[in-house]
Structure formats: C-alpha cells, structure tokens
Write a protein that binds this DNA or RNA. Structure first.
Lengths: 156, 156
DNA sequence: TGAGTCGTAGACTTAAAGGGTCTATATTTT
DNA sequence: AAAATATAGACCCTTTAAGTCTACGACTCA
C-alpha cells in the first residue's frame, strides 16, 4: 500500500553543475573554434579524472558542446557562449529545473494539487529563479585561464 | 588523498518541508490558541504516521510551534502566523538556505573561491529566492480545513 | 596502413541523504 | 492510577551523488 516516490530532492546545485560550468567557462575563454582535450580541461579546472567524461557526454548530447574524436580530438562550444544560459546548463547535466515535483507533474505527483495552498508560492519562487538563470550565460563566466592558474597568479 | 564531501545536495524542497508547511498551515487555520493533536494533523493533512513527530520536534525546537504534553496535548503556533516566513520554515526543518556550499563556507569548501567566476551568479540567485521566501508567510497558506476535507468537498 | 591518441558508452563502487517506521520514556489530564 | 499524549532516538530501505574504471570506436599522423 505504500506509494513509491521517484524523487524528492530537487534543485540540486551540486558538483555536476559546478564542473559543467567550469568546463564551459574554460571553453568559452578560448579562441573561437579551438579544440580542447578532456585532460586539459580536467587539469586546468581541477575536475576529477574521468568524471568530466560523463558530464561532457551530456553537454554534447544537449547540443551545447561539439566533440571531436580521435587523436588531437577534444571539445569546443557548439554555439556562441552568450546563447548558453545557466538554466540551460543545469537542465542539460542535471534535470528539468523545478523546485517541487508537483509544479510539473501536478496530480500525477500529488493528489491534493487542486486544493494546495503552497503551490502558488513555489511556483512564484521557481519563476524568479528560472528567469534570472535564463538571463545569465556562460559568456558571463568565461575565463581564458583555468582556476589553478588564476589561483596561483594571485598567490604570488 | 581524497577529499571527503559532507554534502552537495542543496535547496532540497522535499517532503519534510511540504509536511511542515501542511502542519503549520493547518495550525494557522485554527482558532487562536487551539491545541491540535499530532494524529489529527496527520489525518487531516495526509502526513505519514510518526513522520510528523520528527518534523514537529524541529518546529518546536525552532520556536515556531508550542507543544503541550500529556492527555489532551498537542500543538499550537508559538507566534502569529504572519511572522513565520517560508524561509524560516525551510531553515527550521531542513538546513540553512543556500544554493551552493561555497556561498557560506567560502574557502573552507572550495579553494578556488577567490578566483571563481560562478560565485556571484549563485549568490544573486540565492538572494532572489531568499528575499521572496522571506516575504511569504504561513498566514498566506493558512487553511481551516485539511487537504482531505477540501479535496472531498470539490469532488462532490 | 598501423600505432597511438582521443572521445563514447556503460558497468561498477561507495557514502550519504531522504523518507519512513517503531518503541521506550516522560509528562499531563481525568 | 489509567489513559493519552509528546519526546527521543534507534532502525530500516531505497535512491542519489560522486567518483572510478574498462572495453570500444573513431580519428590523426607518421
């Protein structure tokens, strides 16, 4: 008789999103069309080995990044940095951008949807966030040099 | 050499918050000072048996709710509904309201804080959300009747 | 053409978090 | 004293985040 809950943890801004943004930020900082290998990105932006693979896969599948196979292969942005919003990044590597399941699935998730007094609040909150994250893009965080180099630079 | 991560999942608007708001919403809908038992709240608002115990404990500890032990015991709001913001509820039953660890812990969480280009974005996003959820209160979702009754009512 | 370099796909592991249940105990009313 | 209640905390199960690794396919270049 127990209802199965698929997930309840939402709006998880965790490592995946962080790493995706680090990678995109670095790509956006390179000369246009430059192809950068995974290992270079991992090193420069301090992303765990191999982990980046899985994230890049999503970014490629989502059309944000172009991959180049074979020797001398790597990645480059698939479109202008200013057209890649943070919201888009989040949704590409994580999941649809929702604060509460019910905002999307409605009755399918919670039978009280029709009489719920909370719904409008979370809906508004979500809009506020989504609207903002849609207006900010990878261009805004582009960086020619990696985190490691920049940190070393300010530390003498 | 591996760094231990305490947590990365943030801004989890899940069942705990949902149930806390259901409970508070119901208490806020009752005549002032009325004491309501846990089981009544569970039934009326469809909250899993016993689970509410743990949530109410937090709400009591946080000073949002007053508990009354013994026979005829139960709960009542500890202060006016309009002074209990949604943000406060979230922080009372979940955790500090932060989108990314680094926004609070800074260097302690991520050594690249000083050269991070993402930080200001998440900081702004967090402010937007927090400011809004601080302006909305339990009073805005108060309901005299439980979800079950209200749903039954509209279904004929 | 073949060796070496890369991305792709997906299995696998571990730790932690979320959600839920239950029981023993302390406190109050009748 | 008995019944009804909150309190505290142990306990469980499932899913997720994070990270690691390997077999494979595609590409470059000598």
């Amino acid at each position: 008789m127990k209802k199965k809950l698929e997930r309840s943890s939402l709006m998880n801004v965790g490592r995946r999103v962080d790493y995706a943004m680090r990678a995109l930020s670095y790509l956006a900082g390179q000369p246009q069309g430059k192809i950068v290998g995974r290992i270079e990105i991992e090193k420069k932006q301090d992303i765990p080995a191999y982990y980046l693979s899985k994230i890049m896969k999503d970014l490629v599948a989502g059309g944000l990044v172009r991959s180049h196979m074979g020797s001398k292969g790597g990645f480059s942005l698939a479109r202008p940095a200013e057209t890649i919003s943070i919201k888009k990044v989040y949704e590409t590597v994580e999941r649809p951008f929702v604060l509460m399941e019910c905002l999307e699935k409605r009755q399918d998730y919670c039978s009280y949807c029709a009489v719920c007094t909370q719904r409008s609040i979370w809906n508004k909150a979500q809009s506020l966030l989504a609207d903002y994250l849609e207006r900010v893009s990878i261009r805004d965080i582009a960086a020619q040099y990696g985190l490691r180099e920049r940190l070393a630079a300010i530390n003498g």
